[in-house]
Structure formats: structure tokens, C-alpha cells
């Protein structure tokens, strides 16, 4: 992709603009689709139909929602810290969007094929917490502040098991580049890391249970990082009204909203890269190639988004101390043991 663009525009700024705008387009489309899918899935789980009137089966409803949000009055509370209040949604969004830079969308498209891709993702997505804290603090609303503080403690706690799970994958693949990790798993479904990767059969068999545990650990952490039920305590509608984004309206709220769905896809995409072969086709070289790989990447990502939606509309919410319990006393020990096991298996 990079070479292709350079062949058209040369090594100009235009090439880089194009490269960086593509994920944004993908993300916007993805957010709209996810909003629609979430509403429909939730509705059908709840024995109802959701919107049916805007377009065929309500397909235009997300567009209408976005238009509505754009037209809403932008209210800044009189006692808010205006500068931080204005900045917060953008920081949250930038934190999420920056992580998209290293996502390998397709075999021939990756925003930036840095060697430390995974490290970068974990580092840069922590910026989201800063934005959330800013939002909560700047709103000058106690409920928002509660949400922000809960969010900070939650995200920090859950990054540890998540990072451990990532570490185990890195130990197997020997690289932190997302693209390299994906290429490692090429060659069909049996080579995905959840099934032990392309290793000798004994290693594979030993790795499979460990990898399944790690995938679950990572997935649970990712749910916590996107602040969705059962880990939605920073927004906990019935407790904190709407948490850190209570005071936000109009475009600012829309950006939070967008960031949430972008983040949702991001964590799913990372799970896909880490355990489910990234953009590689499950049938080896069949149905592979740049477009097919984009297809596989989006499909796998959306499947995990749907799994998240399914869980969200099924489970109740944990309490803040139970949330910490799950992270520190369940996920971290499991992840630690798994890392040790992976290490042992790899040196075998």
C-alpha cells in the first residue's frame, strides 16, 4: 500500500495523509456498523425489533443518530474547567485512534509497521485514561469524578493481566510487530496461536490449553478496558448516571461515543492479531490476498465485537471491589502461571 501510494504521489506529504486517513474512514464506517449491530442484537436478545422505520430495517438510524448529535447544542457547564473539558474527548479519541496506526488491517496495509507495535498499542491506549480523568475532573460534577477515578483504577488494574497475556504471545512469536505476529500465524486455522501456532505437534498440544486461558484473560481485560458491562462501572448508568461523560453533549459526546466503539474494535482486533491469526485466512492460501485479508481481519474483529455485545446485554455489572478482585486475584495469577508455562514449553 505504502509503495503503491508512493508510486502515485511520490514521497510527499500526500502519501502519509492518505495512509493515516484510511484507518479513520474504516473506523467511522465500523462505528456506524457497530452501533447498528449492537442495537439490533440487543433488541433481538430482548425480544423486540429495535428501529424499523429509518430505511430498510432501520439501517439509516445510526446516520440519523450522528446527524442528531451533530446538531445538538454544545453545553459547557458554567463551573467546568473549560480548557480541560474541551480537550478531554479529543484526548480520549486520539488515544484510541493512535493505536490504529500499528494495526495490520490487511497483508498489504499497515499504518506503521513499527517493530514495537504491541508495546506501542499498550502504551498509547493508556492515554485514554488521561482523557477520561480529564473529562471527569473538568466536569466539576462529583458523579463524573467518581466515574473517572473508577475508570483510572480499573484500566490500570486490567492492563497488567492484559500485558501478561500479550507477553506470552511475544515469547512464542519472538516479535512485537503486529504484522510479524500475523505472518507467524499464516497458513490456515491450525497455525493460529490459539491452537498453538506453527510449532511442532508436542509443543502445540501443550500450548493449546495455555493459550485458551490466555485468550480468555486477554478478552476479559479488553472488556474492562472498553468500560462495558459487566465492567462498565465508570459509566454505570444506574449508579453514576453516566459517569465521566455525564456533562458532555453534542459533538463532544459524539466523540466519546465514537471513541468507545473504536476502542471496542481496537481491543477485538488486538485479540484477533494475538490469538486468531490477524488478517490471515483460516484456509491457508485459499481466499487470501490483500482484499481477502482485509475481509478476514474485519470479520474476525466484528465477531469479537459481537461477542462483547452479547455479553454486555446478558450480564449484570460487578461492584468496584469485585472488579478489582477479578483482576488482581483471578486474572493476574492465571496470566502469570500461563506466562511461566509458555516459557517452559518454549525452552523444551
Amino acid at each position: 500500500m505504502d509503495q503503491f501510494l508512493q508510486s502515485i504521489f511520490g514521497d510527499t506529504i500526500l502519501t502519509h495523509v492518505f495512509m493515516s486517513v484510511l484507518p479513520l474512514l474504516f473506523l467511522l464506517v465500523c462505528a456506524v456498523v457497530t452501533i447498528y449491530v449492537e442495537m439490533k442484537m440487543a433488541a433481538h436478545m430482548q425480544d423486540r425489533l429495535a428501529y424499523m422505520r429509518t430505511g430498510w430495517h432501520g439501517t439509516l438510524q445510526p446516520v440519523a443518530d450522528i446527524l442528531k448529535l451533530l446538531q445538538k447544542e454544545d453545553i459547557i457547564p458554567a463551573s467546568a474547567d473549560k480548557f480541560l473539558f474541551m480537550l478531554a474527548p479529543y484526548i480520549v479519541f486520539v488515544g484510541t485512534y493512535a493505536a490504529f496506526a500499528v494495526l495490520p488491517f490487511s497483508s498489504s496495509y499497515i499504518g506503521s509497521a513499527v517493530d514495537l507495535g504491541l508495546f506501542y498499542v499498550i502504551a498509547v491506549s493508556a492515554l485514554v485514561v488521561v482523557g477520561i480523568l480529564m473529562a471527569g475532573w473538568a466536569s466539576n460534577n462529583k458523579w463524573s469524578l467518581f466515574g473517572a477515578i473508577r475508570s483510572a483504577s480499573q484500566v490500570i488494574s486490567y492492563e497488567i493481566p492484559a500485558a501478561l497475556a500479550v507477553l506470552a504471545v511475544v515469547m512464542i512469536t519472538g516479535t512485537m510487530s503486529m504484522n510479524e505476529i500475523t505472518k507467524f500465524q499464516e497458513g490456515g486455522i491450525q497455525n493460529w496461536l490459539i491452537f498453538g501456532g506453527p510449532l511442532p505437534i508436542v509443543h502445540k498440544l501443550l500450548l493449546i490449553p495455555v493459550m485458551i486461558v490466555l485468550a480468555v484473560v486477554y478478552y476479559v481485560c479488553s472488556m474492562a478496558e472498553v468500560n462495558r458491562t459487566p465492567f462498565d462501572i465508570p459509566e454505570a448508568e444506574s449508579e453514576l448516571v453516566q459517569g465521566y461523560n455525564t456533562e458532555f453533549t453534542g459533538m463532544k459526546f459524539a466523540i466519546f461515543y465514537l471513541a468507545e466503539y473504536a476502542n471496542l474494535f481496537l481491543v477485538s482486533a488486538i485479540a484477533v492479531v494475538l490469538f486468531f491469526g490477524g488478517w490471515s485466512s483460516p484456509f491457508g492460501s485459499f481466499m487470501s490476498g490483500p482484499w481477502w485479508s482485509l475481509f478476514w481481519f474485519s470479520l474476525k474483529g466484528m465477531l469479537f465485537v459481537c461477542l462483547n455485545i452479547w455479553l454486555r446485554w446478558t450480564l449484570p455489572r460487578l461492584r468496584v471491589d469485585q472488579l478489582m478482585y477479578v483482576s488482581w486475584k483471578v486474572l493476574v495469577p492465571f496470566a502469570l502461571v500461563c506466562v511461566v508455562l509458555v516459557g517452559a514449553i518454549m525452552v523444551m
Binding site: A42, M45, Q46, D47, R48, T229, P230, D232, A236, E237, S238, W313, T314, L315, P316, R317
Partner: peptide, 10 residues
Amino acid sequence: DIGAFTPFLF
């Protein structure tokens, strides 16, 4: 209140 929305609609 506990965070489970679906039973409500059922």
C-alpha cells in the same frame, strides 16, 4: 439497578 438490562424487557 444491578446492570442487567435484558431481563427488564423480558
